[in-house]
Design a protein around this nucleic acid. Structure first.
Lengths: 358, 358
DNA sequence: TCACGCAGTGTTACCGGTAACATTGGTGCT
DNA sequence: AGCACCAATGTTACCGGTAACACTGCGTGA
């Protein structure tokens, strides 16, 4: 394992002295005007085939690469999208981020991410400022909490702004006059499926470990759970408040055990479900023999939990792609606008047992 | 849930018509030259306090924000770092990515990520080209596979390039003349600890589920496992080849069961350990009663596995930070260069039992 | 007292592209 | 033949900053 530190930068490299060739360099060598080179580079139609070929040869010889910065300055379009993301350490946001990045790149856009660390109010605005300073053409905001959106009120945001994770009504309320598109997974439907799945298996006492109260997704899943119980005429226990972490799921186990007669739990995400199963196990309660559990998200590990977790899958990557698609539409680079609600999917595994089988 | 699609972009927004104020606009209003404004913005010392104040007021009134693109073009520094990353869907790379992004931002740099999707040879180069086209000042390459580095040979990469995850010798071999810094977690030490921990508990027949053969980390962990066994005079069984996924860990369980007398397994990452435990469970083998398991990485879920997983923690975020620090040093923005090998840490939980206790 | 230096500011060129308009030569139509 | 028109290319201005140098006026030391 080598580890002798170099003592000063740039010792060996001879590069960087000769500046990279510019449009005009290419033009000179090819014997045309710089504008002609520009046209060749941009695929302008009215260029003679012979000229084009000559220019392309020179481009290749000189190893010319167009300077994106100069292009951005001159054209007024940076072809960059800024992604503002809260709490990216979770699986969901990460996956969306990746979906956005890949989709953006495919549309020849670059993406720059700003991760908001804490939840303090100024941080969100700080991120917005940071991205706006980079003059992005479009903005993608992953705003999972209700309050996050309020910050953008009266902010001068780019025309092409997409919000992931909040409902269109929330967005409209927060954004004032400017038009913003919201993209999201239909959390309510997912929550309904999860709960009804348990009800269908005969469970009546279904507890819920929810996400933090100010998260939009958490509220929707909780509402779906509550409504499903009410519709089925079952009693609605008080929801147990978690914070998405497996640790909070572990802690919730104690409360579940204390609530009398609970036979099933709908956890608002897979990590909490994992912690819950662990916690119940430590209390001598088995899943699914004693208590059935359903999660949400379908993280890659879920299928190998003990027991493998029945959960609701969200296609995060697709969500990211859709948001880019919406941005492109707002930017006028795409004519069709796809529907922007993604349907979740119930994934059956073995953490749920019929009540009768107990 | 609202879902009426707008039918054309920009319907309501009145923004974007008036161009943003420029340096010269500010200068005109403040009654100074544009250069003076530039000086104020950049904190140049020789500006009269009175002038500075006046200019700052105008800047505030006009809501002027300096244009990063123009600045980049004029100064020759984009203050952007490109991050080329392979396989970012895993926990480790993701965390490093985030560490890089945050550290970069703190140094007033922007980061742009390119995620290499597959493993085809051209993709890596494609990513390099993509980032180079954005003329980044520095490059951070997350190259976990041996071959990835070969692509950068004879490539004109920025002076400030840092490679995460490969040893300095590999990097020097691949990079030819230009100076590149490698940053990494000491995988070998981590692998040694994991294996020795099992040996210390009396286990002699310790199997290994390795990562893909061409991954640097996988090789180092495997080598550490092998060496530790040899040093202890224990027999070295053949390593079982996994692919980092929990699924491959699950599949490995069968092979472990078929290998006679195995009492402990060192899995090259936590996901495979999870799958392994699941697979063993399905075969009627309990962890840790029948077989002890140690993982690697310490993903957030590990502590809630059944049983909670003993594993080797890597500080991925710190790795990301270190790489930014190294880049800054190469860029001449930082005088001290921190050591760039991060030590891992053994995290004791309950997936290991002394052999005697069986 | 005069030259020198420096703080404070202005002027001009330049970064590497794109946009808009000008120019040229050939073609088709009347 | 004359003219309109278009393909193919060139010219010039401009995007919004920074860099380098020029200028001014005042304090200071010889």
């Amino acid at each position: 394992m080598e580890s002798d530190l170099p003592t000063e930068p740039n010792s060996g490299s001879a590069k960087g002295n000769i500046p990279a060739p510019s449009l005009r360099d290419v033009a000179r060598v090819a014997g045309v005007s710089h504008q002609t080179v520009s046209r060749v580079v941009n695929g302008h139609p009215s260029i003679r085939e012979e000229t084009r070929k000559r220019v392309l040869d020179v481009i290749h010889d000189l190893n010319y690469r167009p300077n994106a910065v100069a292009r951005a300055l001159a054209s007024g379009h940076s072809r960059r999208i800024g992604v503002l993301i809260e709490s990216s350490s979770h699986y969901g946001p990460m996956s969306m981020l990746r979906g956005v990045e890949v989709a953006a790149r495919n549309a020849n856009y670059t993406s720059t991410t700003y991760t908001v660390r804490g939840t303090k109010d100024g941080e969100f605005k700080g991120g917005l400022d940071f991205l706006l300073d980079q003059d992005v053409d479009a903005l993608c905001i992953l705003a999972p909490r209700q309050r996050s959106l309020e910050s953008i009120r009266n902010y001068e945001i780019p025309k092409a702004t997409v919000v992931i994770g909040s409902s269109q009504t929330d967005v409209e309320h927060a954004s004032g006059s400017s038009q913003i598109i919201a993209v999201q997974v239909d959390q309510y439907t997912g929550g309904s499926w999860a709960t009804r799945h348990l009800l269908d298996h005969g469970h009546r006492a279904v507890a819920h470990i929810s996400g933090p109260a100010d998260w939009v997704d958490a509220r929707q899943r909780e509402a779906a759970w509550r409504d499903a119980l009410i519709n089925a005429g079952a009693e609605v226990p008080e929801a147990i408040r978690g914070d998405w972490t497996a640790d909070s799921g572990y802690a919730a186990a104690r409360q579940v055990a204390d609530m009398d007669g609970i036979t099933a739990v709908f956890a608002a995400n897979d990590q909490m479900a994992l912690g819950l199963i662990h916690g119940l196990h430590d209390l001598g309660i088995s899943v699914p023999e004693d208590i059935s559990v359903v999660g949400f998200d379908d993280i890659p590990e879920s299928r190998h939990f003990l027991p493998p977790l029945t959960t609701v899958r969200q296609d995060f990557r697709r969500l990211g792609q859709l948001s880019v698609s919406a941005m492109l539409w707002l930017l006028g680079e795409q004519t069709a606008l796809e529907p922007w609600i993604v349907e979740p999917e119930l994934v059956l595994r073995s953490s749920v047992l019929p009540l009768a089988a107990r």
